[in-house]
Amino acid sequence: MRFSSKPTLLVFLILFTSWLHAQDDLLGLVGEDEPKKEYVKAAFKSSRVINAHSMEFINPGTMDFRILHRFGNIDQGLKNFFGLDQASMRMGFDFGLRPNLMVGVGRSTYKKEVDGFIKYAPLRQSKGPGSFPVTVALVAGMTVDGLPWSDPTRENYFTSRLAYYFSAIVGRKFSDAFTLQITPTVVHKNLVQLQTDVNDIMGVGVGGRLKLNKRMALTWDYTQVFNGLTDGYQNPLSLGLDIESGGHVFQLHISNSAGMNERAFITETTGQWGKGEVRMGFNLSRMFQLKKKKS
């Protein structure tokens, strides 16, 4: 027996090697893939929460054709079909340039206003090695009032038509279903109505979404304005429902605001939720692929 101990060991070895071969994890033989840094996507279904910009960007090479409608106050009843008779709209085109860079232009019927913006995210929420917990996105925009001069007899400057807004979005997709962002914003108006009005209006927006299922989500979009809201103006609060189907996203909502750009909805919201002065509205987004992705 002493003599055969070594061959026995060898037999064991052979059995062991063949057992190794027989095991069914062939994929394990070629090694695991290295974990990669991965950016978190689809924090919101759209690049807007409702009115405010969201932490989400549209894909590079795509164009988002956006049609926004804001109706009249619901409390007008059947006479104006709950506000639906009084539609105000904005038509806009957004373009995705990079995964973290987009631009857009739009025109609203309210004040015949043209607006444009550029949105860039220096930091994006990611997971895996070298991950970052939040997305930080900066938005700079400009609006141009297109109404005739209220007093054509005095000397009017083109710059008086302009207003600017700057937002910093800090947002996080906490889970598949829940996303929250805060958005400090400053709106600068070159010309204000009264001497006592301020030119720089500051506020902080809080926006979020709660996914109900794969294609529907509840959204909310509120801005607390800290200064410069004169009598009669309110903080805008909108509650919405996002519905996604193929290349479309419908954002239905009720809001006390009729504005469709930052200047309008942050500084010129008149409705009071407490008095039921809310209106229906929707954003319709249709995505077009301008640049083919595949090589």
Binding site: K41, N59, K214, G246, G247, Q289, K292, K293
Partner: peptide, 19 residues
């Protein structure tokens, strides 16, 4: 790897992965 599937349309790819 499911995320390695590339589509002609970026939005399709996003929906494929998400929905």
């Amino acid at each position: 790897t499911m995320k390695a599937f590339t589509f002609e349309r970026a939005l399709m790819q996003e929906h494929f992965n998400e929905n």
